[in-house]
Nucleic acid binder design. Sequence first.
DNA 1: AAATAATTTTAGACTTGGCTAAAAATAACA
DNA 2: TGTTATTTTTAGCCAAGTCTAAAATTATTT
Lengths: 220, 220
Amino acid sequence: MLLTQAEENYLKAIFKINEKTNKPASTNAIAKHVSTSAASVTDMLQKLSGKSLIHYEKYKGASLSESGNKTATQLIRKHRLWEVFLFDKLKFPWEEVHDIAEELEHIRSDHLINRLDNFLGNPRFDPHGDPIPNAEGKFMLRNQSTLESLPIGQKCMLVGVTEHSVPFLQHLNGLKIKLGTQIKILEKQSFDRSMIVELDTKTQVTLSHSVVPNLLVKLI
Amino acid sequence: MLLTQAEENYLKAIFKINEKTNKPASTNAIAKHVSTSAASVTDMLQKLSGKSLIHYEKYKGASLSESGNKTATQLIRKHRLWEVFLFDKLKFPWEEVHDIAEELEHIRSDHLINRLDNFLGNPRFDPHGDPIPNAEGKFMLRNQSTLESLPIGQKCMLVGVTEHSVPFLQHLNGLKIKLGTQIKILEKQSFDRSMIVELDTKTQVTLSHSVVPNLLVKLI
DNA sequence: AAATAATTTTAGACTTGGCTAAAAATAACA
DNA sequence: TGTTATTTTTAGCCAAGTCTAAAATTATTT
Ligand SMILES: [Mn+2]
Ligand SMILES: [Mn+2]
Ligand SMILES: [Mn+2]
Ligand SMILES: [Mn+2]
């Protein structure tokens, strides 16, 4: 089926809300995601329901149907592959790739995205460490923990971030922390839940509680 | 100014018609270019005129204003750079790049297009031999002739095509003719204006009059 | 269990970009 | 120079996607 850019954006929003909450996406939650009014969301939910892309019941929120899920997954695949292109090939900083990928993800050509995937070396993760579904829509899983959950003395490596805002990513830039950076936990302050860690550059940095829970790491 | 995709497409159409005819673009000519009705074109011409992107007088056709020209040139720059990306990097055949570039050209980010230009090695011509304007909008000129105008015995090299249709480009594929192919003129048939040429592969082929005038060559 | 608050839906309107049919202007022809 | 033919514009309509304001429903308090 041929979907408009608007319809695609709603499906992606519902996907992300469903994924995070494991519940039907509420009208208001969707409205925030796509930056529009609740009334507009209701209109669109009725349309998407009519096209059998979502399951929707008045006042009960929306979740993706099988075909809606497939569409949303392909969109995420395109988004993340374009992010890899921008980051790896065009050398954009990781905090700038998302907005451009929001536009590129709507280019319609299976041929294009599969060649791009190949050109990039079939990457499994995007510049923020998020998994890239393959052409069949399968997400790659990975053993990962949040840095917060690890004990003093543990060594690990940054493999992802759960927060994608520009200020947060720039903050990490300032700390010289990026994907692949090795981290050893030296101290955990129970008072303010900050953490003192040593990086692979031998420098010590303090990570506040607005940083620590957003870092996904692999044990080493 | 922020333009819609539709507005951009109209500006590009007017640019191309102006370029080819050296006259204001007629409503009908534009309608053919953007595949729409004459009535819709009139509507849009009034809108573009209101935004000072074109010079337009009822019944007299349209031509680009300075700002309209700048916009159209940047679009062509984006279109042709994306074509180079698709052809050089993703290895698409030259007859498939145009349609995808029609979508990619509307992605808005100066940052992106300048990095792409750099990544591609600042190419001056696209996969069809058309010049790529630089960031300031300047087109590179080149000494070229149409194959038709050359005498028997002349050696030359294909540098561009004036026809971009899929069947035409596939026909050239079949003849093993691509940009860079060297051509020597062996015979010119005055009856049907066909031409017998020898390629750099030493093979001889006959080029009909629906092919010859569409080949742009450089003398060697 | 009411009353109040928050969320969601409906109703009605607007903008963009398209359409067809009819009117007006221009071009071509006899 | 009239008379046709063609082109262009106007007029009126439509679908998508948005909005605000009001009504309906559901959730939260007292
Ligand atoms: Mn992103
Ligand atoms: Mn990402
Ligand atoms: Mn093209
Ligand atoms: Mn081209």
